[in-house]
Nucleic acid binder design. Structure first.
Length: 674
DNA sequence: AGCACGCCGACT
DNA sequence: GTCGGCGTGCTC
C-alpha cells in the first residue's frame, strides 16, 4: 500500500479500509469439525466486549447464522485475506487457552504426514471439556502458583554411568535405550520392572535442569508401574498423568496442568505425546513396537512418528526405551539416525529352547509340554511363581505346504497366502494374485494346508501335568497386574503377563509355532518382543523354556540378542520393498474411487508403485501404495487433497468414500480390519 | 454435514 | 408461465 499516484477511487477505498478495519480485532480459528474440506483457517470478527485470546475455545457460525461449529482461536490479528464480510464469533466458550500455537503447529505437521486434518489430531490431543474442573483450574491460576520445584533426587541405576542421562538429553539427539530385564523392589509398594529405572532417572535429570519430559507407554499397566516409580522421585507438583482410562474430569484437569509454564514430567498413553508442556527436553516412547502405540482413530498416527515430528519442532531429544529395539528403530540405528545405549551387565534369565535340546533324542517330535520343561517348572515352583505364556486365539494362521510345513508364499511377491473361499485357488493377501497352480519354493510340494492350532488344549494340558499347583489366569479380559511370591502357575496370554514380586522363578513359553505363523508382516518382530517381555519378568537366576521352536528364532532367543535376525528381516524388507524400508499408504473403498486416487498419486511420484487392488469385502477393495521416504511429503499432500476433494465431490457417501491410512504395516495384512 | 443455488421436466 | 427434482459447490 505504498504506491503513490493511485486514483482517487483506490485511495478512497483504502481510506475506507482503514476506517473500517483499523484496530479491528479478527480471530483466526481452526474449526473443530470432522469434515476434511474445512481443514484450513477461517477468520471471524471479534465483537465488542468479547474477550478472545489465542488458544481459547469459541463457537462460530458456519454458512448460516443458525448453524455453528466449535473452534479454537489460533491468533488474533487486525487484517484478513478474506474478501467478503466476516461473520462474528457467536460465543467465547471459556478463557482457558487449551490450544496454544505450539499444539496447532504440531497437529498440522502430524496431519500433513498422515494425509489427515489438523482438527482430527487436535481431537486426539485435547480431552473433552469438563466445565467444573476448568473453572476451578482458572480460579487456581489467579491465586498464584505454588513454590518453586523441590530439589529432585538423581537415582542410581544399575548398569548405567551417571553421565548417561546428560548424553541422552542432548538437543536433537535420538537414542534407542535398551532396558534391563528383571524386577526390582520399590520403597513405595509392590516390585517394579527394572526397565522403569533408567526412564525415571532420565526424567529426574531433565527436571533438575528445568526441562520437561513426556513418557508414553503402551497400556494402563505400564502407567501404574511408571507412576509408582516416578512418584518416588518426582515432586507431585511436577508430575502429570494422562490416560484414557482415568475419569474425564481428572484427565481434563491434568491436561490443563500441562499448559502451565513450568518444567513437568508427563506420563501417559499415546495421546500424551501431544501434551502441550513447555520447556520440552525429551520424549520417551516405551516399547514402541507395541501395537498400542498406533492410534486407531483418524488420521491413525503412531507415537514413534509423532515423537520424531515433535522433537524436530520442540528441539527435544527422543528416546525409544525397550527391552529390544523395534524393527523401525533397528533400521534407524543401522543407518546412523538413532544412537544406541544399554546397560553394562545383564539380568536376563537363561533361555532353553527345548526343541533344540531334544534334537539328540533321534529327532523325536517334541511334545507340546516337553519333559525337560515340565521338570524345570516343577523345580522352579519350589522357589516361587512360574509364568506360562500362551497364545491368544483369533488370528488366522494362514496356509503351509502340506509336505514340508513351510509357510506358503506368493509366487509374485512372496506375500502370505489365504483361502478366500473353499474351492477357489488361494490368493495372495498383499497383491491379490490367485495362486492357480501353487508350487512350494522349498520342496516342490503342490498341496497347501491350514497351519497352526488353537489354544483350547493348553490350559487343560497344564492342569493335568500339575494337578496340585495353584493356577492363576490372566488374559485380555481379566488382566492381573501383580502376583505375589507364592508358588503358583500363572497362565497368561501374551501381553497380559502379571508382574511377580521378586520375579518369576521360571517361565514356559508355549504356542511358539502358532505365534510365529500369524499372517502379519510384523509376526517375527512381534513374537520376539512378546517372548522377550515374558523373559524380562523372570528373575536373573531363573530359567525360561521356549518350547517347540527351532531354527533361527530359537537360536537368537537362546543367545539373547535379536540383532542378527532383525537385520536379516530388514534386508529382506529392503529387497521386497516393504515397510519400514519404504513408506506405504493404503486406500480402502469402492474400486473406481480407489483406482482414481491411486492413479493420481502414481502420476505425482515416479518412484511410487501400487500393490493390489485386493478385494476385502463386497464392493470394497484395498490398494497399497509404496513410496520412498525422500519426497514422501508430495505423496501425502496429494492424498490429502484427494481426501478433501472426494468429501465434497459428486456421489459423496455418508462417510469417507476412500479411507486413507499412512505407514501402517498392518495394511498389508488384509485380513486384519482397520 | 447442511444448506443454497441452478438448470431441466410436469403441472395449474 | 412456475413449482420443485436433486446434482453441485461452499462454508470466514
Amino acid at each position: 500500500m505504498t504506491s503513490r499516484g493511485s486514483g482517487s477511487t483506490e485511495w478512497s477505498s483504502y481510506a475506507k479500509l482503514v476506517d473500517v478495519n483499523s484496530g479491528q480485532r479478527i480471530a483466526r480459528v481452526v474449526l473443530d469439525t470432522r469434515l476434511p474440506q474445512l481443514d484450513r483457517l477461517f477468520d471471524y470478527r471479534i465483537a465488542e466486549g468479547q474477550e478472545v485470546e489465542p488458544g481459547v475455545r469459541v463457537k462460530v457460525p458456519l454458512r448460516s447464522a443458525t448453524r455453528t461449529s466449535g473452534a479454537f482461536v489460533l491468533e488474533v490479528v487486525e487484517e484478513t485475506e478474506h474478501t467478503g464480510t466476516l461473520a462474528e464469533i457467536s460465543e467465547v466458550i471459556s478463557s482457558a487457552p487449551v490450544m496454544p500455537r505450539r499444539l496447532f503447529d504440531l497437529a498440522r505437521d502430524v496431519s500433513d504426514r498422515c494425509a489427515g486434518s489438523a482438527s482430527d489430531v487436535l481431537r486426539l490431543a485435547i480431552p473433552q471439556r469438563y466445565v467444573r474442573v476448568e473453572k476451578a483450574w482458572i480460579a487456581s491460576l489467579s491465586e498464584g502458583v505454588g513454590a518453586d520445584a523441590e530439589a529432585v533426587g538423581s537415582p542410581q541405576v544399575d548398569g548405567f554411568d551417571a553421565d548417561t542421562w546428560e548424553k541422552l538429553l542432548v538437543v536433537d539427539s535420538r537414542f534407542s535405550l535398551t532396558t534391563a530385564h528383571g524386577v526390582v523392589p520399590s520403597a513405595s509398594g509392590p516390585d517394579l520392572p527394572r526397565s522403569t529405572q533408567p526412564v525415571v532417572a532420565l526424567a529426574a535429570h531433565a527436571l533438575s535442569n528445568g526441562k520437561s519430559t513426556i513418557i508414553v507407554v503402551p497400556d494402563w499397566r505400564d502407567i501404574t508401574y511408571y507412576q509408582q516409580a516416578l512418584a518416588e522421585i518426582i515432586p507431585e507438583a511436577n508430575l502429570v498423568v494422562l490416560h484414557t482410562q482415568q475419569p474425564a474430569g481428572e484427565r481434563y484437569l491434568n491436561y490443563l496442568r500441562t499448559l502451565e509454564d513450568k518444567p513437568q514430567v508427563v506420563l501417559g498413553s499415546r495421546h500424551a505425546i501431544y501434551a502441550p508442556v513447555s520447556h520440552l527436553g525429551a520424549l520417551v516412547i516405551v516399547e514402541d513396537g507395541d501395537e498400542a502405540h498406533r492410534e486407531p482413530l483418524s488420521p491413525y498416527p503412531h507415537s514413534r512418528d509423532v515423537a520424531i515430528v515433535r522433537a524436530q519442532r520442540d528441539k527435544a531429544a527422543v528416546i525409544f526405551a525397550s527391552v529390544t529395539p523395534s524393527l523401525p528403530v533397528r533400521r534407524w540405528i543401522d543407518r546412523g539416525y538413532v544412537q544406541s545405549v544399554g546397560p553394562k551387565g545383564t539380568y536376563r534369565a537363561r533361555v532353553i529352547p527345548t526343541a533344540l535340546t531334544s534334537l539328540g533324542d533321534g529327532g523325536a517330535q517334541p511334545a507340546r509340554l516337553p519333559s525337560v520343561a515340565i521338570q524345570g517348572a516343577q523345580d522352579a515352583l519350589k522357589s516361587g511363581p512360574v509364568l506360562v505364556q500362551v497364545f491368544r486365539a483369533g488370528y488366522s494362521s494362514g496356509l503351509a505346504c502340506a509336505s514340508c510345513k513351510e509357510p506358503g508364499g506368493c509366487r509374485e511377491c512372496q506375500g502370505p497366502l489365504r483361502l478366500v473361499a473353499t474351492g477357489s485357488p488361494p490368493q495372495c493377501a498383499w497383491c491379490g494374485v490367485a495362486q492357480g497352480s501353487w508350487k512350494c519354493f522349498e520342496c516342490g510340494g503342490l498341496k497347501l494346508v491350514p497351519r497352526g492350532q488353537g489354544i483350547g488344549k493348553t490350559v487343560a494340558d497344564i492342569g493335568r501335568s500339575f494337578p496340585t499347583t495353584t493356577i492363576i489366569r490372566s488374559d485380555g479380559e481379566h488382566p492381573r497386574s501383580h502376583v505375589g511370591r507364592e508358588s503358583a502357575l500363572v497362565v497368561a496370554t501374551r501381553g497380559a503377563e502379571p508382574l511377580a514380586d521378586g520375579g518369576y522363578s521360571a517361565a514356559l513359553l508355549l504356542d511358539g509355532p502358532a505365534m510365529l505363523s500369524r499372517e502379519t508382516l510384523s509376526t517375527l518382530e512381534d513374537t520376539l518382543r512378546e517372548w522377550e517381555h515374558a523373559i524380562s519378568l523372570v528373575r536373573s537366576e531363573g530359567t525360561v523354556f521356549l518350547t517347540d521352536v527351532e531354527g533361527a528364532p530359537a537360536m537368537v532367543m537362546a543367545a539373547g540378542n535379536h540383532d542378527h535376525l532383525l537385520r536379516q528381516e530388514l534386508a529382506q524388507r529392503e529387497s521386497l520393498r516393504l515397510p519400514p524400508s519404504v513408506r506405504i499408504a493404503s486406500l480402502t473403498g469402492p474400486a473406481a474411487d480407489v483406482s482414481r486416487v491411486a492413479q493420481a498419486v502414481l502420476g505425482v511420484s515416479g518412484e511410487a508403485d501400487a500393490l493390489g487392488p485386493v478385494a476385502i469385502a463386497s464392493g470394497v477393495v484395498r490398494t497399497v501404495l509404496r513410496f520412498p521416504y525422500a519426497g514422501g511429503n508430495a505423496v501425502t499432500e496429494e492424498l490429502r487433497s484427494w481426501r478433501n476433494k472426494m468429501a465434497s465431490g459428486p456421489k459423496r457417501g455418508s462417510s469417507e468414500r476412500v479411507k486413507i491410512v499412512i505407514d501402517n504395516p498392518h495394511s498389508l495384512d488384509t485380513l486384519t480390519s482397520e
